[in-house]
């Protein structure tokens, strides 16, 4: 019984951490129409930043400052935001499909840095032994996970409320105006490039937070956790749930993550171990088919975008 419950908690922690990244992507793509194909790269920046700021020291690499976890999280968001700003300044004016390719390239480059810059990232081995926050106060991983779930839940709710508020603000309306018709928005005097850049930076900060929370939870970071497939999963979560709708983003995360973990468990339980590699391929194929099917049959997702109007409007 505790095994099953323990698994549910573990599932929920991972799902809610991912939901934060999906909300970030929703701000970029769903609300503003900025295509970011490098989500895994920003997650990685967040994760490694936490490891460097709050992780244990090691003579062989930079960092390991053992700063408090909260400082690590804030630092992770700041570094991700800064990286997004640099990327954005170079690419945000590009045509949307060029932007897709450019951000995809960023993620590849970050992946290569994670693998090769041993003095910063620990290279192939990654960075281990990152202390979980307040772990001493709990008698074991089972109770600790409940605590971590509570932390992640509070953060997710706070982010959701904040995003709902700002997408309904005048700033949020400009984002959607740019997404719908950039020329019109510009002709009304809005600096489209600036707004797109702001959405990219803010969304990427959330991705960095998500990556840092993940690394904080599992206690180590390695490049294998930030493969291009992660970008794809997060995109699928947003599209399935309903791009442009924050509740849809969270719902999509839960649905797709449930599908992913369930198929993963079935493969381990039902298939002999020599077929596990094939099973993992089936798991990935399934997620690809889900995305393509939703795009073709239900392009708005499970709960599509709702009209958002200012609370000052009486309609």
């Amino acid at each position: 019984m505790t095994g099953q419950l323990g698994y549910q908690v573990f599932f929920a922690i991972n799902a809610l951490i991912l939901a934060i990244a999906v909300l970030g992507l929703n701000l970029q793509w769903g609300h503003t129409g900025v295509f970011n194909a490098g989500v895994a790269g920003f997650l990685a920046i967040g994760g490694y930043s936490l490891a460097i700021l709050s992780g244990p020291p090691d003579a062989a690499r930079f960092g390991g400052f053992e700063l408090p976890f909260v400082v690590g999280l804030l630092g992770a968001m700041a570094v991700s935001a800064l990286a997004a700003l640099m990327v954005g300044l170079a690419t945000i004016r590009l045509r949307e499909d060029y932007l897709a390719i450019a951000t995809f390239g960023i993620a590849t480059t970050i992946q290569l840095i994670a693998l090769n810059a041993d003095a910063l990232t620990g290279g192939n081995l990654g960075i281990h032994g990152i202390k979980r926050p307040l772990a001493d106060l709990f008698d074991g991983p089972f109770t600790y996970n409940f605590f971590y779930l509570a932390v992640v839940t509070v953060l997710l709710v706070a982010i959701y409320v904040a995003l709902e508020t700002i997408v309904r603000s005048p700033w949020g309306r400009v984002l959607r105006a740019i997404r719908e018709d950039e020329v019109a928005a510009v002709s009304l005097g809005k600096n489209a490039t600036r707004f797109r850049l702001e959405a990219l930076v803010l969304g990427s900060a959330l991705m960095g937070l998500s990556g840092a929370l993940y690394v904080g939870f599992i206690g180590y970071v390695s490049a294998a956790d930030f493969q291009p497939i992660v970008t794809f999963q997060i995109w699928t979560m947003l599209i399935v749930g309903g791009s442009g709708n924050n509740r849809g983003a969270i719902l999509g995360t839960l649905v797709v993550w449930a599908l992913w973990t369930t198929t993963g468990r079935l493969i381990v339980e039902l298939l002999p171990s020599r077929l596990h590699a094939q099973g993992a391929a089936v798991q990935t194929i399934l997620i690809g088919l889900v995305l393509v099917t939703v795009l073709m049959l239900r392009p708005r997702g499970l709960i599509g975008e709702q009209p958002t109007v200012s609370r000052h409007t009486t309609a």
Binding site: A100, T236, A281, V282, I285, G288
Partner: peptide, 30 residues
Amino acid sequence: GGLRRRNAARMTLIFASFGVGLVVRNAIHM
């Protein structure tokens, strides 16, 4: 073809190609 007939946005086609690539690559892997 279906997406084009529906006049889907260019980005929808790019997403779809992302998914198609994943399916083909893993089918070969399998």
